[in-house]
């Protein structure tokens, strides 16, 4: 079974990513479906405790998913290339604007050297590109011990700076 990084640890990944709109949904197991497929399916699920999640493309509008977020255990964002940065904005919109609290997973061209920033934007699960070493990649979460900007993982550094100054 493929390996997933979840909450900065390795675990087995039992989700099947549906490749295209034409692919049949497997009889059992957890499935991630493209947004278009979800929009057809959403009325019919969940049957028999099936877990269904959605894979967004970087060009998709995350706002259309807002009404469904509370019932989605996993939302994935597919990176066609690691240099396509739209997924970072999508993640922040899902977390910060729509309060999505389930698993937010980066899939596709996901590499070790982007993990730190992806995590800052709210991703907590990473299905790395096949040639990557997930165990070695865990070190990337501590590439930096601080960050200036407010994002999903923490507030702005200026807030923390004043807090420590008061304590001292």
């Amino acid at each position: 079974m493929p390996v997933l990084i979840k909450n900065r640890a390795l675990q087995e990944d039992d989700w099947h990513v549906l490749a295209a709109d034409v692919e049949e949904i497997p009889a059992r197991g957890s499935v991630l479906v493209p947004l278009a497929r979800w929009q057809i399916l959403r009325e019919a699920v969940p049957e028999g405790g099936r877990r269904i999640g959605v894979v967004l493309d970087t060009g998709d509008d995350p706002h259309v998913l807002a009404p469904d977020l509370h019932q989605l255990p996993v939302v994935a964002v597919h990176f066609p290339s690691f240099t396509d940065g739209r997924g970072y904005s999508i993640a922040r919109l899902l977390r910060e604007r729509h309060g999505y609290a389930g698993e937010l997973r980066a899939v596709g061209d996901v590499l070790r050297d982007q993990l730190f920033l992806l995590a800052r934007c709210g991703f907590d699960a990473f299905a790395l590109r096949a040639d990557q070493d997930p165990a070695a990649a865990l070190a990337a979460f501590t590439d930096f011990s601080e960050a200036y900007q407010a994002a999903v993982d923490r507030g702005a550094l200026f807030e923390r700076r004043f807090r420590t100054e008061v304590v001292q």
């Binding site: 970072y88 982007q114 920033l117 200036y148 550094l157």
Partner: peptide
């Protein structure tokens, strides 16, 4: 400081 390692805008 704001632009340094901005989490959202590293791959514009």
């Amino acid at each position: 400081q704001w632009s340094t390692f901005h989490p959202e805008f590293a791959y514009l």
